[in-house]
Write a protein that binds this DNA or RNA. Sequence first.
RNA 1: UAAGUAAGACAGGUGAUCGCGGCCGCGGGCAAAGCGCCUGCGGGUGAGGAAAGUCCGGGCUUCACAGGGCAGGAUGCCGGAUAACGUCCGGUGGAGGCGACUCCAAGGCCAGUGCAACAGAAAGAUACCGCCGGGAUCUGCGCUCCGCGCAGGUUCCGGUAAGGGUGGAAAGGCAGUGUAAGAGACUACCGUCCGUCCGGCAACGGGCGGAGCCAUGUAAACCCCAUCCGAAGCAAGACCAAAAAGAAAGCGACAGGCUUGCCCGGCCUGCUUUCAGGUAGGUCGCCAGACACGGCUGGCAACAGCCGUGCAAGACAGAUGAUCACUCAACGACAUAACCCGGCUUAUCGUUUUGCUUACAGA
Length: 111
Amino acid sequence: MKFSESLKKNHQFRTVFQKGRSRADRYFVMYVLENGEEYNRIGISVSKKVGNSIVRHRVTRLVRESYRLQEAMFNSGLDIVIVARKSAASVGFHETEKSLLHLGKLHQILL
RNA sequence: UAAGUAAGACAGGUGAUCGCGGCCGCGGGCAAAGCGCCUGCGGGUGAGGAAAGUCCGGGCUUCACAGGGCAGGAUGCCGGAUAACGUCCGGUGGAGGCGACUCCAAGGCCAGUGCAACAGAAAGAUACCGCCGGGAUCUGCGCUCCGCGCAGGUUCCGGUAAGGGUGGAAAGGCAGUGUAAGAGACUACCGUCCGUCCGGCAACGGGCGGAGCCAUGUAAACCCCAUCCGAAGCAAGACCAAAAAGAAAGCGACAGGCUUGCCCGGCCUGCUUUCAGGUAGGUCGCCAGACACGGCUGGCAACAGCCGUGCAAGACAGAUGAUCACUCAACGACAUAACCCGGCUUAUCGUUUUGCUUACAGA
């Protein structure tokens, strides 16, 4: 991804959860926190409650792909964590993309 | 053709546009002693039959270990295969099926201990009903009478285990002889046990002879017997190594503190070097192997030997995705490698191949 890195460490996630703002819809919860950098950092969290390994991987890919294709739409300098909810297990690509943009709008981080 | 049975194979494909992890090649930037880090282009490559459950077995690694025993766990007909196994192959015995074929924790309750509800008369034991014999007594009938005979009832003594009923199980089964009624009391056949001979490496099978058959079930009840098992796991572990705690040496014309009224000297902090240390981080372990396919040889087979050919995931928060089109029965099932193998078990939309069996039809 051109403008973004990924969040990896557990403490980074915790910071976003504690200090960030959150918005949610049927499928996902989005946490946003300004990170003071030039680029965005994105983290995707899919718990075991969502499904088995196959399902979790699939959801992760759909979210990452949606973000990648819509990357230009988002503001810079943000840490974003997207948490999949249980209903995300059966979601398709188009719904994921729509949901992501909708949450972005709620956060008012879209250009 | 239908129904069945056994053993397999596949697990969508093609194209276009974006995108990702290793690897190789050529560049650019940072760093510059070196290792590296970021990035562009090109090439090639990138999950499963179960990758799953983590239920067994082994390799590998570290630790422990003279030898033996106890405890604990696992396995349990016989022979073989194997690195090993609780796996596989071939047999034996038993159960099911017309059959192909399938299934089986299949050692030992005359070492000991425990348990066996309910029902039933009785369950390491019995006589409730019944059957049979005898005595007493009552009633009826027959004979002229004493009395006797016959039939029936009540009761007492004895015999019996055929039949009834209960139960998972009632002391081998079944048929006959026998008897008052019965009973392995006796006989044949089947079963059981013992002996012996023959076949087989063995489990076991077969033949012959003998014993009338003294005695329940349960060991996925404790237990006994035989065999096997040291522990923990790749976050194992090996190496490099910022940092932190530490040791030694040196430095003092220059800093601070303590000792002192002051100086010298000493000590602590300091600085430098070396050593030790091992955190962050990095490298290895980490993918060519008890490997796959084909052929030949040995073996009924599991499998083994030889020859040939082939083999490019190795991430470290973790790569296979998205969109569209065409095709197809298939957008559609189950399900994501994490050190590696051999198995087992469980999940699964479907498609498909071969052998065999039974039934029907045809030649």
